[in-house]
């Protein structure tokens, strides 16, 4: 196989772990308006990890304003900080879905359609990492929720990170 530059996500996943925190997951979630030719970020918003319950988490969500049909990229890295062994079949799900208002606490019904979505299932050991970078556009104006979340961690809470998108 021809040698080549390692991709961004591989680099980030190889990266030495950040200092441990009390949280069970670190999440770095970003949404970027990008230059379609180079992929370079022209404007962006970012959010870190929050927990549920309570519904909607503890922290207010950032708001990212953009326009229809602009080239956008979502990117996240999630690092497992749970130190006490491997958790089987944990899901990490991300999605962009229409919402009724900025900062709404409940997650809209994903079965009604998403702009984009993805889900990974893995046995999550301490310091395991999951990341994605997805290019997308939004065709219709409105309010949207970008969210990445853990599921099935066999815990009394789950972790997530979220950003509101206002598309004009």
């Amino acid at each position: 196989m021809r040698r080549r530059w390692l991709p961004l996500i591989v680099l980030a996943l190889c990266w030495a772990a950040a200092p441990a925190r009390a949280e069970h997951a670190d999440i770095d979630l970003r949404v970027m308006r990008v230059d379609s030719a180079t992929g370079e970020s022209l404007a962006e918003a970012s959010a870190s990890a929050d927990t549920e319950p309570p519904q909607g988490g503890l922290h207010p969500r950032p708001l990212f304003k953009t326009r229809i049909n602009q080239p956008l990229v979502l990117q996240f890295f999630l690092t497992n900080r749970y130190p006490h062994g491997e958790k089987p079949a944990v899901r990490v799900r991300y999605f962009i879905v229409r919402e009724a208002k900025i900062g709404q606490k409940n997650v809209p019904d994903l079965s009604q359609g998403t702009v984009t979505a993805g889900c990974f299932t893995l046995n999550m050991k301490p310091h395991a990492r999951v990341g994605s970078r997805v290019a997308f556009t939004i065709k219709k104006p409105g309010l949207y929720l970008l969210r990445v979340q853990t599921e099935n961690t066999d815990s009394d809470h789950e972790h997530f990170s979220a950003i509101d998108l206002e598309v004009k």
Partner: peptide, 27 residues
């Protein structure tokens, strides 16, 4: 693979015989 990639994802995991991972996404 540079910043113009359409989709890229990665996860890290230990594997013994029978271990599996799955994923799905839209683009």
């Amino acid at each position: 693979l540079d910043k113009t990639v359409t989709v890229e994802s990665a996860l890290s995991m230990d594997f013994k015989a029978g271990a599996k991972t799955d994923g799905e996404l839209d683009f």
